[in-house]
Amino acid sequence: MKKIAFASGKGGAGKTSLSMSFHKYAKDNSLFADCDVDAADAFLLLEKEIQHKKPFYSGLKYKIDENKCIQCGKCADSCNFNAIKKTDKYYIEEFSCEGCSLCEDICKYNAIESRSNCCGELFISDTVFNTKMIYARLIPGEDNSGKLVHEVKKIAHEQVLSAEKEFLVIDCPPGIGCPLMAAISGINLLVIIIECSQSGFKDAVRLINLSKKMKIPYITVINKSGLNPDIDNNIEKYLADNEIFSAGKIPFDKEFVYLLNRKKLIIDSDILSGNLKNIFSQIKNRIEMEK
């Protein structure tokens, strides 16, 4: 079983559009995992019916018991995240708290209580083309997205094995921080989508550097080309100079948005599908080469 992930560093570069379409292209032998737990969107187009869901517990939430608290402020002084604040009385600012429990240790009056925290939900669903997708929804404003990404991948791994499929197609979160690293750790191939803009290029280079550091095999796809030929040339030169494989190029086309607004996949477009199938077959060859 092999895991292939689509990422870009920058948001809006085409990760979800491309990964969903690649999954449909390889639907006979793949399942789909949406690891963008902050803003999971693929279900809007792919999901037919939820088969199974379960809550996700992670981290701790704290409360100060006003009856026990003597307002000494020692907990606030020791908190490294400035999460304990005072108006007339001390309180815990939930959004700044990292859940370390140091305040519980510090308080000699046992005035701080903790409880485990439900911060999201996991889903296993049937898709519109009769495969399975696994995704999660972190409750907006919550923490622990990296752990939830791990959980999505773990469940997806089991599902791929039990369905006897060859691949897991992963849609990654944006950025290069904790959730992204959780999404790409242990995968067999990373497809880096380079949006043809200054920011798309810059972000992709940071992602390439991270992949090198994490020793993850990667290839690239160029998206939204043709807006600024100079930038396109710079990207192609960079890829050639660094001997980075490009599976192909997708021109900027309003058809992308037109299709999305009709909840259709780009692989089903008469205009786009020819080029996409070429790119996907290159990606597929590549993953078959990876161990």
Partner: peptide, 14 residues
């Protein structure tokens, strides 16, 4: 701000 709806975004708008 960073994209998303979790801790980095919350920290940014707080």
């Amino acid at each position: 701000c960073p994209p998303g709806t979790t801790c980095p975004m919350v920290e940014s708008v707080l």
